Computed example of a mutant assay.
Amino acid sequence: MVIVVGANHPWAGRPSASIYELAEQPFLVRQRGSHTYDWVIGLFARFELSPHIVGEFNDPHALRQAILHGIGISLLPACLVREDAQRGQVHLLTLEEVPDLKRVLKLLWRTDWPPNPVARAFLNLLVEQHPQVNLPVLSPYQDR
């Protein structure tokens, strides 16, 4: 997870920002009730802070567009905005208090039903790109 600001934001070019500075900025979040919203609010609460929320979005891509248009800043997965940063549309910063900010995501599936070929391809890609993911060996797909 990284702090994401638009290319014209005063923080563009900075390597990092403090959670205390972040709490004073117009902040964009996912919708209430989402795990991401709860995670962000929990992060601020660890420092006895609350973000200054100016927008809630049910779609991370819509949230990204709001950042591109200068409506506010947010915390987003680096993979979602990496290409925007390479094009110079956004700037990514680390959080000074937690420079290696990570979220734990969980992957669930039914063990009594083998994954179809598309799901199997996704799981193989996941393990290939993220070797730290510990998946059990899946039996070959068999039609029932």
Results as ranks from 00 to 15, higher is better:
D84C: 08
E128M: 07
V118L: 12
T94W: 00
R110Q: 04
R64E: 08
V40F: 03
W39S: 10
L105K: 10
R30D: 07
H35R: 15
H130R: 15
N58W: 00
N124Y: 00
E128C: 07
V133D: 02
E24M: 05
L135N: 05
L80M: 13
N134Y: 00
S16V: 05
L107N: 07
V90D: 08
P140R: 07
Q129R: 15
S18W: 01
A23L: 00
A7Y: 02
A7S: 14
E56Q: 08
R103M: 14
G72P: 04
I19R: 05
P77L: 13
L93E: 06
D112L: 03
D112N: 06
D112Q: 05
Q86K: 13
L28W: 04
H61Q: 15
D100K: 13
A62F: 02
V4M: 09
M1I: 10
I71N: 09
Q142G: 09
D84L: 09
L107E: 07
Q65Y: 02
L101V: 14
L43A: 05
T94K: 13
F122L: 15
A23H: 00
P131F: 06
H35I: 15
L22K: 04
G33N: 08
H35Y: 09
I67W: 00
P117H: 05
L75C: 10
Q142C: 10
S18Q: 03
V127H: 02
S50F: 00
S16P: 08
V40D: 02
D59R: 12
P60V: 13
L107P: 05
L43P: 04
W11N: 05
E56P: 04
V118P: 00
A7F: 02
N134D: 11
G72Q: 06
Y37V: 03
L49A: 03
F44L: 04
P51H: 03
I19Y: 03
R144N: 11
R110G: 03
R64F: 01
A62N: 12
A78S: 12
V90W: 00
E97V: 01
L22H: 02
R103E: 14
Q25M: 14
G55S: 01
